[in-house]
Computed example of a mutant assay.
Amino acid sequence: MHGAHVAEGRGAISLSKVRERAPGLVSLYKNAGASLERRGLSGLRAAVYLVLDRSGSMRSYYKDGSVQALADQVLGLSAHLDDDGRVPVVLFSTDIDAVAEIALDDHRGRIDAIVAGLGHMGRTSYHVAMDAVIDHYLDSGSTEPALVVFQTDGGPVSKHAAERYLCKAAELPLFWQFVGFGNTRSNQFDFLRKLDELAVPAARPVDNAGYFHAGTDPRTVPDAELYDRLLAEFPQWLAAARARGIVR
Rank of each mutant, 00 (worst) to 15 (best):
V206F: 11
V206L: 14
V206H: 10
V206I: 15
V206W: 10
V206K: 09
V206C: 14
V206R: 15
D207T: 13
D207A: 15
D207F: 04
D207I: 07
D207G: 11
D207M: 11
D207H: 10
N208Q: 05
N208V: 12
N208S: 15
N208C: 15
N208I: 11
N208F: 09
N208R: 08
A209K: 08
A209N: 08
A209I: 12
A209Q: 08
A209S: 15
G210P: 02
G210C: 05
G210S: 07
G210L: 08
G210A: 07
G210Y: 05
G210Q: 00
G210W: 05
G210H: 05
Y211G: 00
Y211H: 04
Y211V: 02
Y211M: 01
Y211A: 04
F212G: 01
F212W: 09
F212R: 00
F212Y: 10
F212S: 03
F212E: 00
F212H: 04
F212V: 06
H213Y: 01
H213C: 03
H213W: 01
H213E: 03
H213T: 02
H213R: 01
H213N: 07
A214C: 13
A214H: 13
A214W: 12
A214L: 15
A214Y: 15
G215T: 03
G215C: 07
G215I: 02
G215K: 05
G215S: 05
T216N: 08
T216P: 00
T216W: 00
T216M: 08
T216S: 14
T216D: 02
D217K: 07
D217S: 05
D217H: 06
D217W: 01
D217Y: 03
P218F: 13
P218C: 09
P218H: 08
P218N: 10
R219G: 08
R219D: 01
R219N: 09
R219S: 13
R219H: 06
T220W: 06
T220Q: 13
T220Y: 04
T220D: 07
T220E: 09
T220V: 10
T220K: 15
T220R: 14
V221E: 06
V221L: 12
P222L: 13
P222M: 11
P222G: 09
P222A: 15
P222I: 14
D223R: 00
D223L: 00
A224K: 12
A224F: 02
A224N: 09
A224R: 14
A224I: 12
A224Y: 06
A224C: 03
E225K: 09
E225Q: 11
E225V: 14
E225R: 14
L226I: 09
L226T: 14
L226A: 14
Y227R: 10
Y227M: 11
Y227C: 06
Y227E: 02
Y227S: 07
D228M: 03
D228E: 10
D228K: 05
R229N: 07
L230V: 10
L230T: 06
L230E: 03
L230A: 10
L230W: 02
L231N: 07
L231T: 04
L231H: 04
L231Q: 05
L231G: 08
L231P: 03
L231M: 07
A232G: 03
A232I: 02
A232Q: 06
A232K: 11
A232S: 08
E233S: 11
E233A: 10
E233F: 03
E233N: 13
E233I: 02
F234V: 12
F234P: 11
P235Q: 11
P235Y: 09
P235E: 09
P235G: 10
P235R: 12
P235N: 09
P235A: 13
